[in-house]
Computed example of a mutant assay.
Amino acid sequence: MQASFTPDGELLVPSPTAASPWSDEMLNGHHMGGLIGWGVQRDSPDPEFQLSRMTVDMVRAVPMVPLRVETRRGRDGRRLRAVDVSVLAGDLEVLRGSAVLLRRSEHPDSEPYAPTPWDVPSPEQIEGGPTGPMSWEIRRINPWGSAGPGRVWMRETAAFVEGEELTPLVRAALMADFTNPLSNSGPDGLAFINTDVTMYLARDPRGEWIGMESAGHLGHEGVAFGTTWMYDQDGLIGHCVAGTLPDPRIQARQRS
Rank of each mutant, 00 (worst) to 15 (best):
W118K: 08
P47S: 13
L11M: 12
R103G: 07
G33W: 04
L218S: 12
R96W: 02
V40T: 12
P117R: 09
V223I: 14
A242D: 10
R72F: 09
R96C: 11
R104F: 01
P248L: 11
W118G: 01
L88F: 07
L190W: 10
M32A: 12
L201G: 08
R75Y: 05
W144D: 00
E25C: 02
D204F: 08
P181R: 07
L51M: 14
W136N: 00
Q125Y: 00
W144H: 03
G189L: 03
A176Q: 08
M199H: 07
M175V: 14
S214Y: 04
L245E: 12
Y113C: 00
V85F: 04
M175Q: 15
I141Q: 04
R78S: 14
V13M: 08
L88H: 15
L236M: 13
R96F: 05
T157N: 14
Q125M: 09
R206S: 12
P187D: 05
T131M: 08
V65M: 09
V161M: 10
A242I: 10
E137F: 00
I141Y: 01
L51A: 15
T116S: 12
A252E: 15
T167C: 05
D84H: 11
V152W: 01
P63E: 10
P7H: 06
V223E: 05
L27C: 05
L80T: 15
A172S: 05
V223D: 04
T167P: 06
Q50K: 04
R255M: 11
V56S: 07
S52Y: 12
S15K: 10
G189R: 03
E111P: 00
G219K: 07
G211W: 06
L35K: 10
I210H: 02
A224R: 07
L92G: 01
F225G: 11
G207N: 08
G97P: 05
G129W: 03
L182C: 03
R60I: 00
G148I: 02
D247T: 06
G34I: 07
Q251E: 13
R203I: 09
Q41T: 04
V65P: 02
T227F: 00
E213Y: 00
E70V: 10
P149M: 02
M175K: 06
L80E: 05
P133H: 07
